[in-house]
Amino acid sequence: MKIRDNARKDEQQRDAGRDRWPVDGTTGQPLEPRAQPGYYPGYHTLSQQAFWDEATRKVVLARVHDVPPIRFFSPEEARLMQAICDRLLPQDDRDEEHRIPLVNYIDTRLYHRRIDGYRYEDMPPDHEAHRLGLQAIETIARHMYDRSFVDLGQGEQDAVLQTIHDTNPPAAQDIWQRMSVQRFWMLLMQDVVDAYYAHPYAWDEIGFGGPAYPRGYMRLEGGKPEPWEVEEQRYEWRAPDEALSDTYRPVGGPGGHKQQPSGQEGTH
């Protein structure tokens, strides 16, 4: 009985996973999780590490091999944060071994109280903002579906998060009195992309060259790959049917006249 239960559970789990896989744009079939999604199969920045300088190699390899423990979030908060990150930057197309641990890196920043050198006057400190944000997301989930965020389906979870993206959250108004919805969305997403696109697996996925000192580049024009880079091999895919995040609409929602956030990074 127990064995059958377990088998059914496995099956359910696998099936529960399948509907989260992106879909082949041509066949309509779910795309099996793979070690390296993206259009650059066979391209591995880590394979070039012998050509990197010592200081960079140390920093990047530590990112891959020494994942920091959770110290800021409580176990319950970490579980909720994981569920949120799974929607803000889904990795269902990656196999287990090649998923990028976003929560650990966000947790580490908050644990060390590392900030980017400023705080908006209408925001609490980053670590408080994240705690309040978790409470708010859970409150919205219960308001919309009467269930905890972690127990919702992917479409429901997306719908909860989209209310924040659209700066139109239907609940937790006491929290939004204390911090700007839009700035919280920006903070959350910036932390998520900071963690994901710092990882060599993400560089492989998007065909970014990664560390390039002291070797440098020789082929600058025409988008040509270096001899150790690879040509793009595109494939058509679409997000799972239930997901809401594969269409683009401005922060603040469609047709809104809300002020757009301004960018954070230095470029010029």
Partner: peptide, 10 residues
Amino acid sequence: WGWGMRRVMM
């Protein structure tokens, strides 16, 4: 955000 972020980054 979400899959849209993954897509444009690819």
